[in-house]
């Protein structure tokens, strides 16, 4: 699936054995987005000409030239991936520590809002701390893990108490929808002014 990172667009994928990997979203052959590709076993293949790549980024197969064993140097740029408590993290460069853990919380859904973090904070009436916004709605707590995509767009991962029942989870999802709407209204108003 496509994702964004400070290093540019990313093709994020999970192999059959369950391992996640992140590639620069551009096939080195002719520039097709790899996020449109397909996963077979432990490889990701480009939809255009079927060039397939291992998780480490090295090309394994060029279907137009089936006799060739591609050298290790034909490769796509990779990013480090950590799978932590149901949240996939990618890092640009080599971070000193692993991603944060959110004990007692479970990821519910991810959503994109057409607003920056400032507008979201204004709508929620509270500030984010280290990328996590603690939002209480109708006496229920919802945690929003925020990843900015430029100034005017934010990827927001909704987390809930891991003991929540389905009704509570649905209510949390609806609360996040409503908050998104309010934040986008504020962002639009800001542009109008």
């Amino acid at each position: 699936m496509p994702a964004q990172s400070p290093a540019g667009p990313v093709a994020l994928w999970r192999s059959r054995s369950g391992r996640a990997a992140a590639f620069a979203d551009r096939c080195p052959h002719r520039g097709m987005r790899l996020s449109h590709g397909f996963v077979r076993g432990e490889t990701l293949a480009c939809i255009y000409h079927g060039w397939s790549y291992a998780k480490a980024g090295n090309c394994l197969r060029i279907p137009a030239h089936p006799a060739l064993a591609p050298p290790d140097t034909i490769r796509v740029a990779t990013l480090r991936v950590e799978d932590g408590g149901g949240i996939i993290w990618i890092s640009v460069g080599e971070p000193a520590a692993g991603p944060p853990r959110f004990e007692g919380l479970a990821p519910l859904r991810s959503m994109v809002l057409e607003a920056g973090i400032v507008a979201l904070e204004a709508a929620a009436g509270t500030k984010a701390a280290e990328g996590l916004l603690d939002y209480t709605h109708d006496d229920r707590a919802v945690w929003l893990l925020l990843a900015p995509e430029g100034q005017a767009r934010t990827l927001m991962h909704v987390l809930v108490d891991e003991d929540s029942n389905p009704d509570e989870r649905i209510a949390a999802s609806r609360a996040a929808e409503a908050l998104r709407g309010a934040a986008e209204d504020i962002a639009r108003g800001g542009i109008a002014r």
Partner: peptide, 23 residues
Amino acid sequence: SILENQIPGLLPLDPGMEIPTRA
């Protein structure tokens, strides 16, 4: 959908970021 998702949008005349083969 292929044509609308190739990077860069313009046709590169320098293949320095690509790997053309005999095909």
